[in-house]
Design a protein around this nucleic acid. Structure first.
Lengths: 255, 255
DNA sequence: AGAAGGACCAGTGGTCCGTA
DNA sequence: AGAAGGACCAGTGGTCCGTA
């Protein structure tokens, strides 16, 4: 069951060791390992050879077509990243060093499971219990081996996941349309904002309420840009722009 | 209406100016005002002469009995603080440079009003809306002139306020008993923990649930020590201490 | 060019400890 | 001594920008 959650090309504990070595090597002499703006040098991450259990049918590849370093795993000095996403239809499996959108959404479900575990641990220990996917959860995910999950990525696509949660049909249609047109992931991502703003209008443009009403979505922070777009839509959506003085801003057109 | 919320001895805008001067004087030469561990020197706060409107019947004094500086307001170089709390019965007004516990609890109600204002502003502006009394709320309170409200003080007595909210009768009895015995505020404060832990037992020792069930209490963070005490009570409250290996810790005796 | 993510940064929750 | 609160600090939310 757990293995089904692994990504097609995840990094493993070996990478963690690589990181550790890097960290230790940095503090030469034992001083508190200054973290100046320049801490980008050391390249020592490694990728492990893919094992059979890792093939979970989610995307597959990254094996024989390993060109950059001849034989086995990549040489030291290569920085391993997740493959970029491409716009895929629902159910479509991405090929050729790409990841599909089903996999993207799957990462959000994984984060939710990590949150549930962190919550469960916190309760056992009598500690504060997070209600959202926090830094603590990302750290836990990484420690648990899910090194392919990171905060910037998850935050970047939250609103895409939101559309998937709130209007799966609409989300699916959008994916098909953008794949058809050959648009890249960035364009699809941008297009996910509009239907969400439209949905928020039915709730007085309260995007937080919309997120909180959905149990799998409520654990995610509302992205700043989406909140701003809903605010602008509420304020500027009407015919005329209020020319009156400062105080009570445009009333929300509720339902 | 607003004036009724002011404390018996609040500081005012003058104090803020004093602080500003202090801050500017610190950065001698224009460098980024280093904030080393030593930033404790400058004394430049001032207290303003009390005006008639300030007499709101909450505690009164600090007027003619001003001994330390002869005539009018205190001289520059005096650091003004709120008067310390003393244990008072419900309805009892503290005298002689002391503040009573009704006033303490009143501060919590004031913070709630400041939170409501911050929330209202945030919603108007389409910004994140705090659900708790955060740093932002304390900053807003201070800016609005409530310089007598500060975070360490409010956090220090949160559990006392919790008892007042959740069991006003019990809280009142405790106050009477501790006043009778001539106990100081610290002793009364310590005594407020126990009844709360006992109440939490009825909710599976889930102190967060207890806080969240009360609308005026739910806006306050659960104090670390109270959470720990509830955890200890849940774990060690039973007859025997589990000698078994690590994993599933003591089950909560729920109701 | 398009995209993934290490690392930074302003402001947070939490509370110590120099102060009165 | 008992108590109020300025100021510190580790770890947060947020995302930029050097990287691949």
């Amino acid at each position: 069951r757990r293995l089904l959650l692994l990504p097609p090309n995840h990094l493993d504990a070996i990478s963690q060791e690589g990181l550790s070595e890097e960290r230790e090597a940095a503090g030469s002499g034992g001083e508190p390992a200054r973290k100046g703006k320049q801490r980008r040098g050391g390249k020592s991450k490694r990728k492990k050879a893919k094992t059979d259990e890792d093939d979970d049918g989610w995307g597959e590849e990254e094996d024989s077509s390993e060109t950059e370093s001849g034989g086995g795993g990549p040489a030291a000095g290569e920085r391993q990243r997740e493959h970029p996403f491409i716009v895929t239809e629902p159910g479509e499996v991405a090929r050729a060093k790409k990841n599909g959108l089903d996999y993207l959404f799957h990462l959000y479900e994984q984060c939710r499971e990590f949150l549930l575990q962190v919550q469960s641990l916190a309760k056992e220990r009598g500690q504060k219990c997070p209600t959202k996917v926090t830094n603590q959860v990302f750290r836990y995910a990484k420690r648990t081996g899910a090194s392919y999950i990171n905060k910037p990525k998850m935050r970047h696509y939250v609103h895409c996941y939101a559309l998937h949660c709130l209007d799966e049909e609409g989300s699916n249609e959008l994916r098909r349309a953008f794949k058809e047109r050959g648009e890249n992931v960035g364009a699809w991502r941008q297009a996910c904002y509009k239907p969400l703003v439209a949905m928020s209008a039915n709730h007085g443009y309260d995007i937080d309420a919309l997120f909180n009403a959905h149990p799998r979505l409520s654990i995610w922070y509302v992205p700043t840009k989406l909140r701003q777009m809903c605010h602008v839509a509420r304020s500027g959506g009407g015919a005329a722009t209020s020319a009156a003085g400062g105080l009570p801003p445009p009333p929300p057109p509720m339902f």
